[in-house]
Every structure is written in C-alpha cells, then in structure tokens.
C-alpha cells in the first residue's frame, strides 16, 4: 500500500495541550535494514521533537521502553520492526491499563505499589554468617525463571484482572517476584508471605488466561509461578477459611 514507505501510527497525548488522546500518523522511508522499534521512534523523534517515550539501556535489560506494539506489549528496544510490521504499518500505544502521563509514558505507581506489597527482599532474621547464606545447587535452580524479571510491566499491563483491580490484584510481575522469594531457601517468612496473599484478590484474580506468558520479553512464565503460589496456599492448612489480613 505504501511501497517502500512505512506508516507509523503513534498514540499522542499531551495533557497541557490536548483534551483527549489521539493517533497521529507518520509516513517515513522504510529503513533499508531491519531496525528495532526503539530506533524507529528515534527516527520519528528527529522529525517531531515533541514525541515522548522512556528508554535507557536499549538492550532489553532496564525495562524502560515497554509499550504496546501493534496490539501486543513488548520492549521497543529488542523488537525488530520486521517481526511486528503489518501491511507496512506499525501502531504504537502506551502500556494499557495505566494512566498516561504523556504520549508513550505511563504512570507506573500502581505497578510499583503492588511490587512493594510483596516485600521483594530476603527476610531472614537469623544471625548472618560471616560471608554469605549458602544454597545447594538444587535450591538455587528453583530461582531460575524467576529472578530474571526486569519489571518492564509488559505482563501486568496485558492482564485484564490487573486492568480491573490494579489496587487489589497483585499482578503477574509482582506475583512472579512473590514466588521468587517463596521459593528461596534463604527466606524464612514463607508463612507470612502466604498469609499476605491469601485474600480473594491478590492471587486468585488470576484466571490463567496466560497473556502474561504470551508477552513477556524475557520469556518468563508468571502463570506457572502463580500456579505454584496457589499450590502453596492450598497446602497451607492454617486458617484455610477466614482471612484476617485482607
């Protein structure tokens, strides 16, 4: 349709000037080689300095440039345009479900509040050894597929349960981290962590639709971790009916 031109449809919103968000189309020459979506945004920014987006490491480590690319969440810096382009068109929107600050920049307060809620740090009140708390190779293996999360929020913002109840449902990213500490042999607050997740919303609003698995740019499986947490909660016989920590 556009020959060797590329149409980029970009979500634009500047609360100081715009009453409502809108989609703005940019037609640019199709890059000769396959570039990343982030590079495409740089090209657009050369044309229009007012475009706003987050970026930092540009190699899929910092998780700053999570956005909705042609309907699927992903990191712009590690997504080649060839993998997302449809009929010479790319549509870029901010991560869904979070308030938009400007253009592709979203307010991640709710996302971080959930992360804070799961207490993402080792809790072990026993006297620390001289060097470090040791783990067997098997115990360490349990953390694989969990610790690699970069908190880009692609998973949580693709989850309808997180869209509807971001203040109550912890969300896939934070639940993946919750299990990372539940599975850690050095952490001794398993019971307290499970109690904090035992209400009907924190974990049980996950209905296993697996959008999180589908979009995770690091190839992680939050749904499996949530299943493990549910399994631990089911085995946790203490006060199975009534929750006091809601």
């Amino acid at each position: 349709m556009f020959g060797n031109k590329l149409k980029v449809s970009l979500y634009r919103y500047n609360p100081e000037e715009d009453k409502f968000p809108y989609m703005k189309n940019y037609i640019i020459d199709k890059p000769e080689r396959d570039i990343m979506v982030l590079d495409l945004l740089h090209l657009l920014k050369e044309e229009d300095q007012s475009i706003s987006y987050r970026r930092s490491c540009r190699e899929g480590v910092c998780g700053s440039d999570g956005m909705n690319i042609n309907g699927k969440n992903g990191l712009a810096c590690i997504t080649p345009i060839s993998s997302v382009i449809k009929r010479n068109k790319i549509e870029l929107r901010p991560l869904p479900g979070l308030p938009v600050i400007r253009d592709l920049v979203v307010d991640m307060t709710e996302f971080y509040a959930q992360y804070e809620k799961i207490k993402p740090f080792l809790q072990n009140e026993t006297t620390a050894p001289e060097q470090e708390r040791l783990q067997s190779p098997e115990e360490r293996d349990k953390l694989d597929g969990l610790y690699e999360c970069i908190l880009c929020a692609c998973c949580s913002t693709s989850c309808p349960s997180f869209w509807w109840n971001p203040d109550k449902f912890v969300g896939p990213a934070a639940l993946l981290q919750a299990y990372r500490f539940l599975a850690d042999s050095r952490d001794l607050k398993t019971q307290e962590r499970l109690e904090a997740l035992s209400d009907p919303f924190s974990v049980y609003r996950c209905h296993g639709i697996m959008n999180c698995v589908n979009v995770c740019p690091k190839g992680l499986n939050p749904n499996k971790a949530i299943g493990e947490i549910k399994s631990m909660l089911h085995k946790n016989k203490k006060d199975i009916i009534v929750s006091d920590g809601v």
Partner: peptide
Amino acid sequence: NFTSFFWIFVYMKGSFIWY
C-alpha cells in the same frame, strides 16, 4: 466499601472460594 455488601467473600480466604 468495595465489597462490604458481600463481606463474606472478602473475609474468606481465596483458596476457600477457589475450592
């Protein structure tokens, strides 16, 4: 206030409702 009308679901454990 969120679910006060159905408080029983709020104070029940998620696993109990799930089961």
